[in-house]
């Protein structure tokens, strides 16, 4: 009587999904931007507020957009790595200072070092919303045509950088 096996079959199917589910992170939301043009912005420079900086200034370059804030504790974890990258001149990094105060942000950079080619102020978080930022830090990898190629949520670890991001950066820089 196969019909009596149906409940078992149903259970096995659910079980398989639950088992796979154990290895997934339900809180990580993939960005719908991958492969799409990065939203454009023009914001005041953190160090010189009267001068503006926009996405078009990075056209033709492969660059990182790093969303950070002085109130963000996890940002300190990834900061040394960013400073290293800047020293080695691997890739230009633009800092999007998210919902922060200028004096605090500047003090923070003074204390931990400034890896940013340019840091811009997104005081009310409006540009953050355009980029779909939901946690800080977040880092976007943008190619020469202004297309978002990769998004890292949370602090960038050495492992994540070397295994996932760096190869992609090299490839994009070649093309």
């Amino acid at each position: 009587m196969t019909k009596f096996l149906l409940p078992l079959g149903g259970f096995i199917a659910i079980f398989a999904f639950l088992f796979i589910g154990l290895g997934l992170n339900p809180r990580e939301v993939p960005s719908p931007f991958i492969g799409k043009a990065a939203p454009t912005f023009e914001l005041g420079n953190l160090h010189r507020p009267d001068s503006r900086f926009g996405t078009q200034d990075m056209a033709g370059k492969v660059w990182l957009l790093n969303v950070w804030a002085s109130w963000c504790v996890a940002c300190r974890d990834e900061h040394p790595l960013l400073v290293d990258l800047a020293k080695q001149d691997t890739i230009p990094i633009v800092g999007l200072n998210y919902k922060d105060k200028q004096d605090q942000a500047l003090a923070w950079l003074k204390q931990f070092g400034n890896p940013y080619r340019v840091a811009v102020m997104d005081a009310d978080g409006r540009i953050g919303i355009d980029f779909g930022v939901y946690g800080v830090p977040e880092t976007f990898l943008i190619d020469k045509k202004g297309i978002i190629r990769f998004k890292h949520i949370g602090p960038i670890t050495k492992k994540a950088w070397e295994e996932k991001m760096l190869p992609l950066v090299r490839e994009l820089q070649k093309s």
């Binding site: 009587m1 009596f4 096996l5 409940p7 078992l8 259970f11 096995i12 079980f15």
Partner: peptide, 13 residues
């Protein structure tokens, strides 16, 4: 659950 459903499939018919 798996064990009881196997038992069910064997005995229920």
């Amino acid at each position: 659950t798996g064990g009881s459903l196997v038992l069910f499939a064997v005995r229920a018919p």
